[in-house]
């Protein structure tokens, strides 16, 4: 453990950093239409009721967990 950073923090930083890099890469104009970006993924789910309900369910669970169950 270095400066209060534990192994779990490092893994989260790697996942988060990779995720952020992928977000940027897929948003670049050069990626164009070849790579689906984050907005395209969400829009894809919103085309039907089942996809929209799945996302809303996840949204509700995330909100309840973060704002009512955790500090």
């Amino acid at each position: 453990m270095i400066l209060g950073v534990v192994i779990g923090d490092v893994v989260w930083m790697v996942i988060g950093g990779s995720f952020a890099a992928w977000l940027v890469v897929t948003s670049l104009p050069a990626a164009g239409r070849r790579l689906p970006n984050g907005v395209a993924i969400v829009r894809h789910f919103l085309h039907s009721w089942i996809g929209r309900v799945l996302l809303l369910g996840a949204w509700a669970e995330v909100g309840w967990h973060l704002f009512c169950q955790r500090p």
Binding site: V6, I7, G8, D9, W12, L66, Q69, R70, P71
Partner: peptide, 17 residues
């Protein structure tokens, strides 16, 4: 459930407090 393995919501909790 170890201190070395925080969940993401625990980390976010450091912000939402």
């Amino acid at each position: 459930q170890q201190r070395d393995l925080p969940t993401l919501s625990y980390l976010i909790g450091r912000v939402t407090r």
